[in-house]
Design a protein around this nucleic acid. Structure first.
Lengths: 336, 336
DNA sequence: GTGAAAGCGCTAACAA
DNA sequence: TTGTTAGCGCTTTCAC
């Protein structure tokens, strides 16, 4: 069944049927009703491929994400999806699985699909930035960057201010009397890790704290085990720090697990502050002072940027830096 | 830029270019190289809409999910995505947000997009089953059901055996000496809740335990608060049961939270067993005896069913009932 | 090994 | 208010 057959059955032209389907242009009420009835009767479903080809435009937005099981990204996605459905746009996902190659492959597919625009939460590492830059060179599709600001990449975006966020966390610990603060962060290649270490260093400098090299521990953002094993060893060897900054959600989980195993009370025996505010921890009643980047809101804002970009290709690039919010929950304390 | 212009530039016909793009049919090596070079040079990206329209077939699979922030569904999705990329298929998501209307709307869009097939994790309630049945009446697209078995819906599917899972959990508590077991489950309309209560009742009957009406508590699967408030009240009024079956992840979280707030030790002061095995709880070192349905594997299996169905439209319907796995972790114990 | 041309199902400009 | 028709960019059959 297609529009032509349907038109024949109704004794009208394809144009008239098209008008009815799209509720566009004038059609006599009588004709309209007849067509609608026939559509119903034959269970006719218009072919979106043909429509999009003809209009030379689709109604889908692509979203590329490093990892769909990361709660932070999920919230970003949900925010974006809400706005998408508000704007009658569909969303296609790609999971790059933390591999820049997959990310570029996804972009290619999205271009082939002639999607309207895309949201990119890039998984790019410090040493891969050039590959990404080259890959998006003549993308020709409106793109919004999310989460990670990448230098010399001239796209709209909503970014977390990791340096500031880290600064705030460090400051909280300092204000609670700590002078010896350990930060567990991601791999040395990670852009996010780099920025978070930078904020830590800035705060230490500003407060005249002399940093020890061994206080910056590079672990892995993408699993819990790496940080867990390191922390476990520290606990076993009784050299657990008194103040820890957990560099992301996974590292935070590793801390909580080890502390529970070794019966170290957060906010009493040890001060713990962390990045990423995740619902489930609160639901479990685990209170950790965190900086929150409100991912849901970020996703929504990113989508709005995209809408604006679609409306006006030539408006100036808009880069939004989200101000991190410090949520004090008591874990930064310690019993003297 | 399109295939015709490219053909002109290369001094060949569109057919030849098409052959090169799709690496199909014979083309002289020399011609091929020239075309590939030109594609590169002009950054030509073939139009998938036109290709799909022409071939009358797409390479996308639709997945409809009730809630992307539910860890169980995320695992299902991830499993399906792995298989999808193994089979060179793309995945489009829809979030029905627990609303059957959205679910049906998503199906309609997917049909318009002429997707190859779909995976449906339905959010249908007991009293909505007829709506769903009517909605999928002449769907004409290969569909695989996931998670929830729905009577008189003749599609392939991978289903959890909620009755058996619930039976197993109840049995564990009984074997630990309990005769007075409380189950906190979802809303009365929920199919899953219905089955889980059934398994509980079956076990009680088999073991000759007389059930009290008040031991079955209907809460809400979709948030933590509902169960939390009920449990909190119980704790305050000192009428906390000695043995609890948490009807899903959210209810499990509610239990853990209340127990932590009232300093009730799981596996000592109270026996707790639950549905849904979620990574994060283990990562936090919270040990709860659960039945696991291995969502990742279910997603993969569902996708394989879909592939089979695509290969052979007429093969007999295949309904896989996953055998729930009991993971004993000590929380079912209690100090006498 | 290559090309011409018919079609996929729809939209939209133009004509009536 | 309705119809005719030329595309949209590609695939594929058939002929050469």
């Amino acid at each position: 069944m297609n529009i032509r057959k349907l038109a024949n059955i109704c004794g009208v032209s394809v144009a008239t049927v098209s008008r009815v389907i799209n509720d566009k242009g004038n059609v006599k009420e009588e004709t309209k009703e007849k067509i609608l009835k026939t559509i119903e009767e034959f269970d006719f479903v218009p072919n979106a491929l043909a429509r999009n080809l003809s209009r030379n435009e689709t109604d889908v937005i692509g979203v590329i994400v490093p990892d769909v099981s990361n709660a932070f990204y999920i919230e970003l996605i949900k925010g974006a999806m809400i706005e998408a459905s508000n704007n009658n746009l569909n969303v296609v996902f790609f999971n790059s699985q933390g591999d820049i190659k997959n990310e570029l492959k996804a972009m290619k597919m999205l271009r082939e699909q002639r999607i309207r625009g895309m949201l990119l939460i890039s998984c790019v590492k410090k040493n891969e930035v050039d590959v990404l830059r080259k890959g998006v060179k003549n993308l020709n599709i409106p793109m919004i960057l999310l989460n990670k600001h990448i230098e010399n990449l001239n796209y709209d975006g909503v970014f977390t201010d990791d340096v500031m966020a880290s600064y705030l966390l460090t400051e909280v610990l300092i204000n609670n009397g700590h002078k010896d603060i350990t930060i567990l962060t991601g791999s040395e290649n990670s852009i996010v890790a780099y920025n978070r270490v930078k904020g830590y260093e800035n705060a230490c400098k500003d407060y005249g704290i002399n940093m020890k090299k061994e206080n910056i521990i590079y672990t892995n953002f993408n699993d819990v085990e790496t940080a867990y094993n390191i922390l476990r060893k520290m606990a076993e060897e009784k050299r657990m720090p008194k103040a820890i900054i957990a560099g992301n959600l996974n590292i935070n989980l590793a801390c909580i697990k080890v502390f529970s195993e070794f019966n170290i009370k957060i906010g009493e025996d040890i001060s713990l502050v962390a990045f990423d505010d995740i619902k489930i921890l609160n639901e479990l009643g685990i209170k950790v002072t965190v900086v929150s980047q409100n991912p849901n809101d970020m996703g929504r804002q990113a989508f709005k940027l995209l809408i604006n970009r679609l409306k006006d290709k030539n408006s100036p690039i808009n880069k939004i830096h989200v101000v991190p919010e410090l949520l004090i929950r008591g874990s930064e304390k310690i019993k003297k």
